[in-house]
Amino acid sequence: MIDCERCEEVMQPYLDRDLDAVEYAEAERHLDACCYCRRRYRFETELRRYVRYVVSEPMPLELKERLAALRLAL
């Protein structure tokens, strides 16, 4: 079974679904047994979602109008 250090190394490819079947199964086995790593995987998943949410700024309405005004005249 992989150790916590290896589990940390494969966290990003695991969450990106970029591991092969064997590596994926090894990570799963470790995560089933290790609540320390499980907590860290859960944190990373939430962090990614949170980052995406908080940095999303709506486009200023006035910019939208300026972009529309750039359209070429017919």
Binding site: M11, R39, E44, L47, Y50
Partner: peptide, 23 residues
């Protein structure tokens, strides 16, 4: 490594609980 942040957060504010949100 990838656990760096969560390790620092736990050092500063105790272990993250299952119900706790990142925010």
């Amino acid at each position: 490594g990838d656990y760096y942040l969560v390790d620092r957060l736990e050092e500063a504010g105790g272990p993250l609980s299952d119900e706790e949100r990142v925010d």
